[in-house]
């Protein structure tokens, strides 16, 4: 039986970019731009089995993609709630590992014009589900089969 737990966390990251808020915002607003900087191609390969990638950048629209990392299939599913061009983005996203939901997060990205360009503030509030202390934890965090079997062995002991 899976041990149930929820862990809550908020982190805030601030960055300054020498570019106008409209340019920084535009980097989030199209698949083409986002693919140019935001994909995880360096650590993972796309996984067609999780369904087609989707990028529907409007309030109520979804962004979805899947990839495989160390043998585990990860799925990302985001829903946009608030889009203010050049100023703000609010979306939620779920993460799945092999079909098991392991986090639900709310991300707020703010773009503020400064003398030197833009200050971007990324605030992410997350509920991290199960797995933190359960038998699935190493698998969800590291995706290693060996660790999964170790966890299973400990669980069964």
């Amino acid at each position: 039986m899976t041990e149930r737990s929820v862990l809550h966390d908020t982190f805030v990251i601030e960055r300054a970019y020498p570019a106008s808020p409209s340019r920084v915002f535009a980097a989030f607003a199209s698949r083409e731009a986002k693919d140019a900087w935001g994909d995880t191609g360096d650590i993972a390969e796309a996984d067609p089995s999780t369904g087609p990638a989707e990028f529907d950048f409007r309030v109520g629209g979804h962004e979805r993609f899947g990839n495989v990392y160390q043998g585990v299939s990860y799925t990302y599913d985001a829903l946009y709630y608030d889009i203010v061009p050049g100023q703000r983005l609010v979306y939620s996203y779920e993460m799945y590992a092999d079909g098991v939901r392991f986090s639900v997060s709310l991300a707020t990205i703010e773009f503020v014009e400064t003398d030197d360009g833009t200050t971007l503030t990324w605030t992410e509030q997350g509920a991290y589900l199960d797995g933190v202390d359960g038998p699935d934890a190493p698998r969800l965090r590291q995706g290693g089969t060996g660790e999964m079997l170790d966890g299973l062995a400990k669980y069964l002991a």
Binding site: I13, Y17, V24, W37, L120, E124
Partner: peptide, 21 residues
């Protein structure tokens, strides 16, 4: 560690955003 990995992931993406810009 789990949560710090998520934070690190976002930081890496924002680094790449800076390079892209």
């Amino acid at each position: 560690r789990w949560i710090s990995e998520r934070r690190t992931f976002v930081e890496r993406r924002l680094d790449r955003l800076g390079e892209y810009l």
